[in-house]
């Protein structure tokens, strides 16, 4: 029964993924990518990873779709017609896939309880969590926050850093001294904002914008 559900979900994922690749309209592609995330969340539930499924449904299908739509509003949603036949990418992909499939012959079978991954640390977490943590039945939470708290601290710092990066790239404020605009470097006076620069650029080639 589980096998049938898994097979159906995998088939849906493959169809959605190929549709995303072939779709020329980026708006439709982004929505299909959201559907892909939601279906993969279903697959995670089948594989017992309820926390991962929850995160994927909230983050993958929710926030990343919204962010991509926000970016599409800024860059337009039409993809140009591909100019050449994708022979080389297809060859590379088939080759890589073949190598990976060959690699699976060396890894232990899916779902076997005596796989090496299940023998070392995981049993300790599952058996001792109740004793170490008091009444916290969700082992994922206790591993995430306590046993592997360093990991989680690093991840939190990473998403904070990502925010800083995005704000450096996108937030309003005074521009740096040199700005790359439409294929050429422009030197601007310190303290110039985007709006002022755009206003001077739209007036034409005035001295103020090109004083470098």
């Amino acid at each position: 029964m589980t096998g049938v559900v898994t097979a159906v979900l995998f088939a849906m994922l493959a169809i959605t993924g190929i549709a995303v690749t072939r779709m020329r309209d980026l708006f439709a592609a982004v929505m299909l990518a959201g559907i892909y995330s939601l279906v993969s969340a279903g697959l995670f539930v089948v594989m017992d990873a309820v926390d991962v499924a929850f995160t994927e449904a909230a983050v993958g299908a929710g926030i990343s779709t919204v962010l991509m739509l926000g970016a599409l509003a800024l860059v337009g949603h039409k993809e140009a017609e591909p100019k050449r036949r994708p022979v080389l990418p297809l060859f590379v992909v088939v080759l890589t896939g073949g190598i990976l499939v060959y690699g699976t012959s060396q890894i232990p079978p899916f779902g076997a309880p005596d796989n090496p991954a299940h023998l070392h640390v995981a049993p300790y977490y599952l058996e001792e969590s109740d004793h170490d943590m008091g009444h916290i039945p969700n082992v994922v939470t206790s591993v995430l926050a306590s046993y592997r708290g360093y990991d989680t601290m690093g991840e939190t710092a990473v998403i904070f850093t990502a925010m800083v990066g995005v704000l450096l790239l996108l937030a309003r404020g005074p521009l740096p001294r040199r700005v790359f605009h439409q294929g050429e470097w422009i030197t601007v006076r310190p303290g110039t904002t985007r709006e002022e620069l755009e206003a001077t650029l739209h007036e034409g080639d005035t001295e103020e914008a090109h004083d470098g």
Binding site: A49, D51, V52, T55, A117, V121, A122, Y125, L126, V139, V140, V143, L144, R148, D151, T152, E155
Partner: peptide, 9 residues
């Protein structure tokens, strides 16, 4: 649970 924790983050 270990892959779940790592993949969640």
């Amino acid at each position: 649970p270990i892959p779940h924790v790592l993949m969640l983050t």
